[in-house]
Design a protein around this nucleic acid. Structure first.
Lengths: 347, 347
DNA sequence: GATGACTGTTGAATCGATTGACTCAGGAGG
DNA sequence: CCTCCTGAGTCAATCGATTCAACAGTCATC
C-alpha cells in the first residue's frame, strides 16, 4: 500500500544555485554554458552548488528563450517493422551523440494521424522532423510544414520539394537483382510485395520493367502481386503465382520479409528455393544470411539510413541555408543460395 | 542549389491571436482550453483567428507554467531488437491516444549512458519515465530518479522499490515449457541464451532449475549456455551443445531469436528440430508460427507489455498517490511442431 | 591624471502561455 | 434605490533560463 510516487522533490532553480554560489543568476547561467567571460574559480563555485543542490536544468525554460529545443521528431509509419526499428535505432544513437533527443511518432500510414503527429511536433517546437511520409501525402502539406522547421525525408523521390532526403538506390538495386535472375536463365520473373501507392515500390517496379525491356523480355502485369510487407504477404503471393500456367520460375521481392514468406510458401508446396525456384529479397535483414537456404538480397542498411538522416538534419540545423542535399545510399546485391541453381526448364 | 530551409515563418503567438479576435490574451488562452467562462461566440472568434493566422501552440511555454510536459520518456537498451520494437510501438500508440508524446532513449545496457539519458529526460521535465533498467542499475539510483518523476519499470523483480512495474510471468512460462519437454520424454534439457546479469534470465533460470528438481532431474550447469540474444547466439550455442557427450535432446531458449538460431544450427548439423531435437523459444514473435518447423514457444506479447506500461504511467499521473501496482502478464505455452516428436533415445 | 581597453559580473527585459484576483454590466431581490 | 449575484472578460504576476547593455575595477598608455 505504499504510494509509488515518493516525495516529489522541491524544485531547485538556477536562482537557488546562484544564491548558493553567491553570484547572480546571470553569472550562474553563463558559467553553466561555459562562457569564457566567467573566471575559473567562479565557474567552479557554481558547479559545486549545482552538485550540492541536485539542480536539474530546465530545458523548457531555455527553449522558450532560445527558440531551440534540442529535439528532433521522427515520424514513421510503424516502429515494429524491423527495418524501421533499425532505422530508428540508427537515428536515435546518432542524435544522442550530439545531445539531441528523439521524439517518436507513428502514423500507421494514415494521413489524418500523420497531420496530428506533425502538429504535436510543431507544438513541441522541434528543431527538425525526419519524416517517412504516409502514402498520398501532398507536396503542399510538406511545404507548409517546412515553414516551421527543417524536414528530412526518408524517401528520395519528392524532387519538387526543396528538402534534404535520404534513400536507397532502388533503381540500381532492382536492376542488379533482375539482371542476376536473367543471367541465371529466368524469363518469367515475378515481382512480389508492397502496395501501388508506395513511391518506393513504384520506383522499383519501374526499374524492374525497364530492365526486362532492355533484355527483350515482355512485361506481364499478372506476375506483379501487391501484398502487405509481411511474411504472410509473401506466402499468399507465391501461392497465387504457382497456380498460374506457366508459373514464374523466380521472384524479386519488395522486401526480405516478403521473400521469407515466399520461401515458406514454396516449401509448403514441395519446392525448394534455390533449387526449383529463385528468390531475391530487398533489405538484407540479419536473418537473410541465416535462413536455409540463405537469401540472395539487395543490401539496404536501414541503420545507416537512420544515421544518415540524422546527420543531414544536424547539418541543416548548423547551416540552415546550405544547399539541399539528396543522399542515395548505394545498394549491393548479396548473392547467396536462394538463387543458386540455373533455371530448370528454360523456355 | 535551392536552400532547403524555405522562409521561416514569423512566429505567431497567442497575443497575435488575441489581437485578431479582439480579446485579451487571457481570454484567448481560456477559449483554447475550452474553459466554460468563455461564451460560445467568443470562443468561435478565437478559433477562427487561430485558423486564419496559422497559430501553433507552444508547449514549452505552457509546460513552464503548468509544470506538465505531456511527454513520457521510454528508456530501453536497444530498439532494434524486435521485442523492444514491438514494446515501443505499443507504448507509443497508447500514449499518443492520450495526447502524450514519447521521447525515446537507448542505453545499450550501459550504466553511464543510462544515467545521461535519464538526466536529459529530467531536463525535459518528462511527466514520467518507463524504464528497462540496464544490468547492475542500483535501487538507490532509481529511488533518486523517482524523486523527480514517476517511474514504471519494465521488469517486475525490484520489489524493494515502490515503483509500478510490468513484466511477463517468467516463472510460470518457464515451468510450463520445461514440463512440456519432460512430458515428451526429455531428460537432458539445455538452457540457451541471455547473460547472467539479466534479472529476467536469472528468474527463468531459477524456475528451470526448480522445475527440474521437482521432476528429480539433476541440474547440469554445462547445459546452460549464456549468449547474446540473437540468432547467431543460438547458432553458436547449439554448436557447442551438440559436441558434448551425451548431448542434450532439447533446448529451452531465452528468446525466440535464440531458438531460431538453434534451429538453423541443428539443420546445419544435419538434424531437424521437432524430429531429432526439441526446441522451445520465448516471446512468440510473429515469425515463430511461420518457421519450418513452426516453433513451440512461450507467448509474451511485447506490444501488450508496452501498452500496459503506458497505462500504468497514465494511471500514476492521474492519481499520484494510488497504491503501487505490479502487473504480471500471463504467459501461455504455444505448442507447435518444434517439440512434436517424443524423445528418440530415452535414457 | 585623464583616457581607453579589458575583464568579470550583474540588472532587467524577454521568451509565450496560464491562472488567481479582479472588474464591469446587467438582472434579481428587498 | 441599493445591494448582491452571476456571467463574461481582463490584468498582471508567474514559470525558469538567456542575454544585452551597463558597470565597477584594474592596468597600461599617452
Amino acid at each position: 500500500m505504499t504510494s509509488s510516487g515518493g516525495a516529489r522533490r522541491q524544485k531547485v532553480t538556477l536562482q537557488h544555485v546562484a544564491d548558493a554560489a553567491k553570484v547572480s543568476k546571470a553569472t550562474a547561467s553563463l558559467a553553466l554554458n561555459n562562457n569564457s567571460r566567467i573566471s575559473a574559480p567562479t565557474r567552479q563555485r557554481v558547479l559545486e552548488a549545482v552538485e550540492a543542490l541536485g539542480y536539474v536544468y530546465n530545458r523548457h525554460a531555455a527553449s522558450l528563450r532560445t527558440q531551440r529545443s534540442f529535439t528532433i521528431g521522427l515520424i514513421i509509419k510503424d516502429v515494429s517493422n524491423p527495418f524501421n526499428a533499425e532505422l530508428t535505432s540508427g537515428a536515435e544513437s546518432q542524435l544522442a551523440d550530439h545531445d539531441y533527443s528523439l521524439v517518436l511518432a507513428t502514423t500507421d500510414d494514415d494521413l489524418g494521424k500523420q497531420s496530428r503527429m506533425v502538429q504535436t511536433m510543431l507544438e513541441r517546437d522541434v528543431d527538425g522532423m525526419i519524416l517517412s511520409p504516409a502514402a498520398r501525402t501532398t507536396i503542399e502539406s510538406m511545404q507548409r510544414w517546412m515553414q516551421y522547421c527543417p524536414l528530412v525525408l526518408l524517401i528520395p523521390y519528392y524532387l519538387e520539394l526543396a528538402a534534404d532526403c535520404v534513400g536507397m538506390d532502388d533503381e540500381q538495386g532492382t536492376r542488379r537483382a533482375v539482371e542476376h535472375l536473367i543471367e541465371r536463365g529466368h524469363r518469367r520473373i515475378a515481382f512480389v510485395g508492397g502496395f501501388a501507392a508506395q513511391a518506393t515500390r513504384q520506383k522499383r517496379l519501374e526499374s524492374y520493367r525497364d530492365t526486362l525491356r532492355r533484355h527483350h523480355i515482355a512485361y506481364d502485369p499478372a506476375l506483379c502481386i501487391a501484398s502487405p510487407v509481411t511474411r504472410r504477404g509473401g506466402y499468399d503471393a507465391i501461392d497465387q503465382l504457382l497456380s498460374m500456367s506457366p508459373p514464374p520460375s523466380a521472384a524479386y521481392c519488395y522486401s526480405d520479409v516478403n521473400a521469407f514468406g515466399v520461401m515458406l510458401g514454396l516449401r509448403a508446396a514441395g519446392l525448394e528455393a534455390g533449387e526449383d525456384f529463385a528468390v531475391i529479397g530487398f533489405d538484407d535483414v540479419p536473418e537473410a544470411s541465416l535462413w536455409h537456404p540463405s537469401l540472395t538480397t539487395v543490401s539496404a542498411d536501414p541503420r545507416g539510413l537512420g544515421e544518415e538522416a540524422a546527420q543531414l538534419m544536424l547539418r541543416r540545423i548548423a547551416r540552415p541555408d546550405a544547399p539541399m542535399k539528396r543522399v542515395i545510399m548505394p545498394s549491393r546485391l548479396i548473392v547467396r543460395d536462394s538463387t543458386a541453381a540455373l533455371v530448370k526448364v528454360p523456355r
